[in-house]
Design a protein around this nucleic acid. Structure first.
Lengths: 142, 142
DNA sequence: CACATGTAATTAACGCGTTAACTACAACAA
DNA sequence: TTGTTGTAGTTAACGCGTTAATTACATGTG
């Protein structure tokens, strides 16, 4: 069945939902001169440790060409390090640097406040339910 | 509570979900040389009839600067018409043109197939549930 | 070794997202 | 009427999304 109106269209709903959620986080990121995508890359590196570019792009939901630009920016600010993989001259290994970890630590309290507020307004159970559905959708389609 | 991993982060999950869904629609749009955003604008105009730019931007989830560019492109291909509102020289009224309607009609069958496939794979009830949750999230945060 | 094929990353080109600044017009007050 | 404030839309600047092409290296075959 085709969605009769744009409001009930899945791509539109996902877009709009992301929009209103990100509106909460954007000021925090802007205050530290980090873009959403740079932030995602930093968080993945912080969680996952040193990792190759392809996996990093995948986990941060960023396309390779974007990642190249992001790496350039983050390396320039000493937030991450970039080294060729030993044994394979094509691969590149990225890792978080002290300044990067410091930024993540600095933003964590604020992040928590925003996330808690969303969770409280929307409801813990509904949030979990939504995350489950999204995870299912992703796994089913990808 | 902070999400412990990026996979369980609401903004990331919404982004990723949108990504896998749009991957299904993208080839269809590319085949007709229409971008996602141009397509959204056309659909809103098709559903809502002649409308002013601000409302159009709002309903299509497009920012005003983007809409200006999109209007230029769509008007150049005679998909839409653009006229100053009578009585207020600032406002602009957009409407779908025959070529625009024709494009929407031409894509509808393909759209339906893709949408039905997603619905079938994901499940009708779960899709409705997901749309409800997204709608609630949007209304609660915006 | 030489060559073809495959893969990781980058570059290029173009459109959109985002914020801020700007233009044009409208509404309102003195 | 004139000046102020507000609003609709556009322009500008910069980063990302997307696709395609390109570079550099690795792997496999003869």
């Amino acid at each position: 069945m085709l969605p009769e109106n744009t409001r009930r269209s899945l791509p539109m709903a996902l877009l709009h939902a992301r929009e209103v959620v990100m509106a909460r986080f954007r000021p925090m990121l802007a205050a530290h001169d980090v873009t959403e995508q740079q932030w995602r890359v930093l968080r993945v590196l912080s969680e996952a440790g040193p990792v190759e570019a392809t996996e990093l792009a995948d986990r941060a939901s960023v396309l390779p060409p974007s990642l190249t630009r992001i790496i350039k920016a983050l390396e320039g600010r000493r937030f991450i390090t970039r080294n060729k993989a030993e044994g394979d001259g094509r691969r590149v290994v990225l890792a978080i640097a002290p300044a990067g970890s410091a930024l993540i630590d600095a933003l964590s309290p604020e992040r928590r406040v925003i996330y808690d507020d969303i969770e409280q307004r929307f409801g813990h159970d509904r949030l979990e339910q939504l995350l489950d559905l999204l995870e299912n959708l992703i796994d089913g389609e990808s």
